[in-house]
């Protein structure tokens, strides 16, 4: 088969012209019914009254959002002040997701660059090695990390044996563990899009810079980074968005003090103490933050295309 047929890219092919909408009907129906409709219903739930044993009463109220943002005292009769508990959880989640993104970028960019600049045949092997963890069960990866850093786990055993520490490090149930877990979970998500961008990078740009006496780090800063920026931004979004709503890393590696958005939401739907409208409202706020990030990205991209 002609792998590289000259007119090969049949993106503009129209041999099944007129069938487009019909062929897309299954996607529209399935995603429409089982994702778009559920999100809309969740939006409705967030403005309903909570039922005490989980569930909702169909009475309109903004109580869930009120509880999220405002503190009206124990009996609800004091003048409202800003409630910092939930805003604090969101803020810490955003901060941790941001830090995970930066850490992933620091390791992910050199990795992506190194792999993309290998000769074609070894390159695909390197790439394959990065891809495997991407597809390995996130639960298993998180459990493995927990096993590794436990108080009596292999990491501590090794450090004790090597004489680097005298007493085991208590890593599990700390912010550090959650941070490590997020970084570890989403690291492959950073490498792949940057790799794709570097692979398309035109090295004559680097040659031109070298001819004008730029050293390699200057070239990196002034030429390479701006050119591969779309890949870097895509990687950052792919790390930041799932980190923000992460559930497994904080739940398994963190403790009560390292509560993140994911656990806050999950708790509202488990057991009798749950509050479904509040969980739905917290989900809507999370979804709004994510959509805002994606819209900003889309706007920046279309602006970039025009110039």
């Amino acid at each position: 088969m002609a792998g590289a047929a000259p007119q090969g890219a049949s993106a503009g092919s129209d041999i099944y012209r007129g069938n487009g909408p019909r062929l897309l009907l299954p996607v529209w129906l399935w995603v429409g019914i089982f994702l778009v409709a559920p999100v809309l219903i969740m939006a409705v739930y967030s403005v309903l009254t909570k039922e005490f044993r989980g569930g909702v009463i169909w009475d309109f109220t903004l109580a869930a959002y009120d509880q999220f943002f405002l503190d009206r005292g124990l009996f609800g009769d004091e003048p409202p002040r800003i409630e910092w508990t939930y805003i604090g959880i969101f803020w810490r989640s955003i901060w941790q997701a941001g830090l995970a993104t930066v850490l992933c970028l620091l390791i992910g960019f050199p990795t992506a660059w190194f792999i993309a600049t290998r000769p074609a045949r070894v390159r695909s092997v390197w790439l394959f090695l990065i891809t495997i963890p991407y597809w390995v069960n996130l639960l298993i990866r998180t459990v493995s990390m927990k096993f590794l850093i436990r108080d009596t786990g292999p990491l501590n055993e090794f450090l004790l044996w090597a004489g680097i520490i005298d007493t085991p490090l208590a890593l599990v149930n700390t912010n550090f563990a959650v941070q490590l877990g997020l970084f570890y979970s989403y690291l492959p998500f950073m490498v792949l899009p940057i790799y794709a961008a570097v692979e398309r990078y035109d090295f004559s740009l680097s040659e031109a810079a070298a001819d004008l006496y730029a050293d390699s780090w200057t070239t990196l800063r002034l030429i390479i980074l701006p050119v591969v920026k779309p890949g870097i931004v895509a990687g950052c979004i792919l790390v930041f968005v799932p980190s923000l709503g992460a559930f497994l890393a904080p739940e398994l590696l963190g403790g009560a003090k390292t509560f993140m958005i994911g656990s806050l939401i999950e708790e509202q739907f488990k057991g009798a103490a749950g509050n479904w409208p509040f969980g739905a409202a917290a989900s809507m706020i999370l979804l709004s933050i994510v959509m805002a990030v994606l819209l900003l990205h889309a706007r920046a991209q279309t602006k970039g295309d025009r110039t």
Binding site: A37, P38, I41
Partner: peptide
């Protein structure tokens, strides 16, 4: 891919 997983999970349950 764009909707956070926890949000999809909650939305599916209430749906």
């Amino acid at each position: 891919l764009m909707v956070p997983e926890i949000v999809t999970a909650v939305a599916s349950l209430v749906f």
